[in-house]
Design a protein around this nucleic acid. Structure first.
Lengths: 110, 110
DNA sequence: ACAATGATTGTAGATTTGTTACAATCTAGG
DNA sequence: CCTAGATTGTAACAAATCTACAATCATTGT
């Protein structure tokens, strides 16, 4: 009950991962999707950012970064944005599941 | 060879995790350590940020965020900053290991 | 052809966030 | 008390992001 084990570290990873939110610039860098486009997708309700305060900047959590990556992939594959959005929504169910199972599953409701 | 499996998703997690870098404000929020102090620790060489361009802002990757959390913990425990730094360096070896093992271990050299 | 819709992109001006480089303060030990 | 270690404050500046306009471009239906 003193030195944390490796297992502890791995588990803590997901705990931390849940809290990690990155700016739109980072998402653009990681995904290759321009900021402008990311905002557009968010306007359409396909992805969602967390806004901490009132007039603050967008922050994207892990799952939404994943969404961006998936949507991009599907667009490149030739799907329309709407179709991609629908498909991603399907896939996210699985990912959400795996994610909350790994992270100790507190409610992933609203 | 079409629909990714859950295993794929899990593995991709670490791939993505490696690329995630967040601003100093986020690190401060997550850790509770003031930005000012985070910069101080960085000046002392305890943590390290990645700087993309020349005159750009600090970004912290997963491992350095972890470092911040660990240092904070140790300080709260009553260690001096130097002692905490040394202890953290020890611990990071393990974490680095586990991390690169999980993420498909490309060289974590310099 | 042309209108309509979907999707993307451009940009100016304002706001938020982060930087540096100074210096002041606080604290534990000798 | 004095010193080195550690933290904190802040002003002036630079980088990143925001919003709200609008233009562009491709696809599809008439």
């Amino acid at each position: 009950m003193s030195e944390p084990t490796q297992a502890d570290n791995v588990l803590m990873d997901f705990d931390l991962l849940k809290k990690l939110v990155v700016g739109i610039g980072e998402v653009a860098d990681i995904s290759g999707v321009p900021q402008r486009q990311i905002r557009y997708w968010e306007d359409k309700g396909i992805i969602r950012s967390v806004k901490e305060g009132e007039g603050s900047t967008r922050k994207y959590d892990y799952l939404n970064i994943k969404k961006v990556l998936l949507v991009k992939e599907l667009l490149d594959d030739g799907f329309t944005l709407d179709a991609a959005a629908r498909k991603v929504e399907e896939r996210m169910k699985t990912i959400n599941d795996a994610f909350s199972r790994l992270s100790g599953n507190k409610g992933q409701s609203e």
